[in-house]
Design a protein around this nucleic acid. Structure first.
Lengths: 228, 228
DNA sequence: GCAAAAGTGTTACCACTACACCCATGC
DNA sequence: GCATGGGTGTAGTGGTAACACTTTTGC
């Protein structure tokens, strides 16, 4: 056995995204820190990785323990690993940041130690550690992947109206899209397809009843070209 | 002080790429492992991260200690973090893989414990640990970034002939490109510019002497659109 | 002049944009 | 009918791909 050498601690942090129901903005899950350092501050959920768990398992544990929500089924992917030497005042900690996505329909966090916060309301500089930078990196990545993958599927229920889908794209990209071209392109390249049925008399807002659509591919990332 | 808990060890592995001079293929640096496990096998250079060094510093150390070459100035970027629980038989080790690029002109590895190996000659399944998978991921990432960044600059000297640049693109992408359209597009979008002087009587191969070109942007990643 | 390689121009095609128009429903 | 929102078609524009052509050198 070699002598034990002091090594960095490895942790995971998760940026969990959702679309706000009302104003169609992007929101992230923050939790209120219970202990030092930065006790009381709102931060990204994170935990130290155990010796026998994968990063994805650790990320889901962070969401359950710190984010107070059931994380079993949600979409998680690696973002990047943050390694600044002094990013954690407790000692050397390297963090593998993850992006998570939950559909509108999913249940929110229990209690009040965790909450959805619209991105516009989050002061990046006010987040502890390097979490402001992690959040910024996550938004940039999500925005990029929206343009060439079907990742938006993970922010919506199984079937959806096409205007909901467009709202997701507009919320993430932060700009308006042309309604006609949006639907034409996504249908032509086969990213989405009709789910067959017309939406029944639920949530009528007047006007012609919309079709329902679904994403054609099950897996995220099979695509290769620009959608928007 | 809390009780010490058994945690994963954190390491870095580096996929260092170069273009082969002769046949214009992509090559990676492998080193011959000196100790168990997999003693004698060719593997990616990697080291365990020290408590006071960044990942990039660890990656450069890996290239110097295992790859036997001076790594101070080269281009390094993070690829992804590999976390399979049994990827290392010695015990739980999570590895942050990096991609490195060196220009054609750079010095090769010293000695014979490290060598450039053309990708076509590397049997992915023959690499130890999950290095075959890491290598595959690295090639895919490099191929992707070539299409929307100026990362090719890191595989070439400061100034270069345009046919050299096209050879780099073809080597990485693994397909032939149209000569006329290649030059027209890269010049029109301003990715490269003339370096002013004609190449003097060096390496004449007959025909009209070529201009020299350079990349316009210094930083990698400032670009946003498809080049090829 | 001829060969060879660099560099330029031309044309057809396709994708994207903007916008007008049609369709189906509630009232 | 009229308002409302879903759904479709079209013309203009600009980028891409294929390829022919011109330019500049060595011999």
């Amino acid at each position: 056995m070699p002598a034990r050498i002091e090594r960095p601690v490895l942790s995971v942090d998760v940026v969990l995204f959702r679309i706000t129901e009302d104003n169609n903005e992007l929101a992230a899950l923050l939790h209120r820190r219970a202990s030092r350092p930065f006790a009381g501050a709102w931060a990204l959920p994170g935990v130290a990785v155990r010796i026998d768990e994968t990063l994805e398992a650790a990320a889901k544990r962070a969401l359950e323990e710190k984010g107070q929500l059931a994380a079993a089924a949600l979409h998680l992917e690696q973002l990047a690993t943050f390694d600044a030497v002094y990013r954690d005042p407790r000692g050397r900690t390297i963090s593998v940041a993850h992006i998570g996505l939950v559909p509108l329909s999913a249940a929110g966090p229990r209690g009040d130690v965790a909450a959805w916060r619209p991105l516009s309301s989050i002061e990046r500089g006010g987040l502890p550690f390097d979490h402001g930078w992690i959040l910024e990196t996550a938004v940039t990545r999500l925005r990029g992947k929206l343009r060439y993958t079907n990742i938006a599927a993970r922010l919506l229920p199984e079937t959806f109206r096409i205007d909901e889908l467009q709202a997701v794209y507009e919320a993430v990209l932060g700009r308006r899209l042309n309604r006609a071209n949006f639907r034409n392109k996504l249908l032509k390249i086969g990213l989405i397809e009709r789910a067959g049925v017309l939406s029944e008399a639920v949530g009528k807002r007047g006007g012609r009843p919309p079709h329902l659509y679904r994403f054609t591919e099950e897996e995220v990332g099979a695509q290769d070209r620009d959608f928007v």
